[in-house]
Simulated scan of single mutants.
Amino acid sequence: MRLNLYLTGAAAGMIVAGAAQAQEPDCKNPKTQADMTFCEQSRYEAADTALNEQWKKTRAALAATDKDLDEKDRGAEKALLTAQRAWISYRDAQCEAYGFQARGGTMEPMLVAGCLANLSDERTKQLKELFDAVGQR
């Protein structure tokens, strides 16, 4: 997808720019657009890691729920997988659209990465809520 290629290109650019700098930027007070983009990309990577960790826990909990149900009532894990695939499509399209605020400019990768981070944080919370609800059974 174009979004992934764009983010990969932005990340590669940041690596090259990062090699030119002696240290990583202060993400509490970034000074340049490159620093801001680096910080948003780092924030997205952390959010994606947290999302993937919660995904594994939630999926395992729903798989366990399926095992406890009669065969005719199973489908929790499959429903979660379907929802997650739809959410990924939504996230990628939404953030690509969000980037059009600065299409072709140096801010675009920062906007996209920030959008990805925000939506990933929200999805992690949703998965945690589902995990907590299923775990209470």
Rank of each mutant, 00 (worst) to 15 (best):
Leu3Lys: 11
Leu7Asp: 01
Thr8Pro: 07
Ala11His: 08
Ala11Leu: 05
Ala12Asn: 15
Ala12Phe: 13
Ala12Cys: 05
Gly13Gln: 07
Ala17Met: 12
Ala19Lys: 12
Ala22Phe: 10
Asp26Ala: 01
Asn29Trp: 00
Lys31Phe: 02
Lys31Ser: 07
Met36Gly: 00
Phe38Tyr: 14
Cys39Ser: 03
Ser42Arg: 10
Arg43Ile: 03
Arg43Cys: 08
Ala47Val: 04
Thr49Pro: 15
Lys56Glu: 15
Lys57Gly: 02
Lys57Tyr: 07
Lys57Pro: 03
Ala61His: 03
Ala64Gln: 11
Thr65Asp: 13
Asp68Ala: 13
Leu69Tyr: 01
Asp70Glu: 08
Glu71Thr: 04
Lys72Val: 11
Gly75Tyr: 02
Gly75Ile: 00
Glu77Ala: 12
Lys78Trp: 03
Lys78Thr: 08
Ala79Leu: 10
Ala79Gln: 12
Leu81Phe: 08
Leu81Arg: 14
Arg85Trp: 09
Ala86Lys: 12
Ala86Asp: 13
Trp87Pro: 10
Trp87Glu: 07
Ser89Pro: 02
Arg91Pro: 15
Asp92Lys: 06
Asp92Leu: 05
Gln94Ile: 03
Ala97Tyr: 14
Gln101Ile: 03
Arg103Gly: 13
Thr106Ala: 06
Glu108Phe: 07
Glu108Gly: 06
Pro109Asp: 00
Pro109Ser: 02
Leu111Phe: 12
Gly114Trp: 01
Gly114Met: 00
Gly114Ala: 06
Asn118Asp: 14
Leu119Arg: 08
Glu122Pro: 08
Glu122Thr: 14
Arg123Val: 02
Thr124Tyr: 06
Thr124Phe: 06
Lys125Asp: 08
Gln126His: 09
Leu130Gly: 03
Gly135Ile: 04
Arg137Thr: 08
